Amino acid sequence: MDQHPLRREAFYRRESKSVPAARAFTAWALDDWQAIERRDDVLLCVSELATNALLHGVPPGRGFRLHIAMCEHRVVRIEVHDSGEGTVAADAPGPEAEHGRGLYLVAALADKWGVGERDPGKIVWCEFGAETPGRQ
């Protein structure tokens, strides 16, 4: 598939091996673009967004689409498109909670994040600047 050099996308089925595959695909794109700034943060957020899509946003028999783009000023944008009706909440989980930290981590690590509409489903996205004041 011919893709714009600074944009990549891939489709993943509703299966557990899709999360590491999405992470590896993202690592390949970042390496191709020589985008090493905040690489670990980006990869962790891809894992969290992909996991949330599988657990809450992808109905049986469907999948999710991962979009990765290098935007102006070397901002990396990640989008996970799903076709489910699940809602998105990034409230801090309680200290005894066994789940619910995924979007809380995304909110803490990404410079920006949000949710957009899609018919059917939604798009959960996050962005990372190459250099963010106050981050090392």
Score class of each variant (00 low, 15 high):
3 Q>P: 12
5 P>R: 06
6 L>C: 15
7 R>L: 13
7 R>Q: 13
8 R>H: 13
8 R>I: 07
12 Y>Q: 01
13 R>Y: 11
14 R>V: 01
14 R>M: 05
15 E>Y: 08
22 A>M: 01
22 A>G: 03
22 A>S: 04
23 R>N: 03
23 R>W: 06
24 A>I: 10
25 F>L: 13
25 F>M: 07
26 T>C: 08
27 A>N: 06
29 A>T: 04
29 A>Q: 04
30 L>V: 02
31 D>Q: 12
31 D>L: 10
32 D>E: 08
32 D>F: 10
35 A>F: 00
37 E>R: 03
37 E>C: 07
37 E>P: 01
40 D>V: 04
41 D>V: 01
43 L>A: 03
47 S>I: 05
47 S>D: 09
48 E>Y: 00
48 E>F: 00
49 L>V: 03
50 A>K: 00
51 T>G: 13
51 T>M: 12
52 N>T: 07
53 A>L: 02
54 L>V: 05
56 H>F: 10
56 H>M: 06
59 P>Q: 05
59 P>N: 06
59 P>V: 01
61 G>E: 09
61 G>P: 11
61 G>Q: 08
63 G>N: 03
64 F>R: 01
64 F>G: 00
64 F>C: 04
65 R>D: 04
65 R>L: 08
70 M>H: 09
71 C>L: 14
71 C>R: 15
71 C>T: 15
72 E>M: 11
72 E>T: 12
72 E>C: 13
73 H>C: 12
73 H>E: 10
74 R>P: 04
77 R>C: 06
79 E>L: 09
80 V>P: 00
81 H>C: 05
84 G>Y: 01
89 A>H: 11
90 A>W: 01
91 D>W: 08
95 P>L: 05
96 E>N: 09
97 A>F: 07
97 A>H: 08
98 E>C: 09
98 E>G: 12
98 E>N: 12
99 H>W: 11
100 G>E: 06
100 G>I: 11
101 R>M: 15
102 G>H: 00
103 L>Y: 10
106 V>E: 00
107 A>C: 08
108 A>T: 08
110 A>Y: 03
110 A>T: 07
110 A>D: 04
112 K>F: 14
113 W>M: 09
113 W>Q: 04
114 G>M: 11
114 G>T: 09
117 E>M: 15
118 R>A: 13
119 D>A: 15
121 G>W: 01
122 K>M: 14
123 I>A: 09
123 I>H: 07
123 I>E: 07
124 V>K: 04
125 W>H: 08
126 C>G: 12
128 F>L: 12
129 G>M: 13
129 G>K: 14
132 T>Y: 11
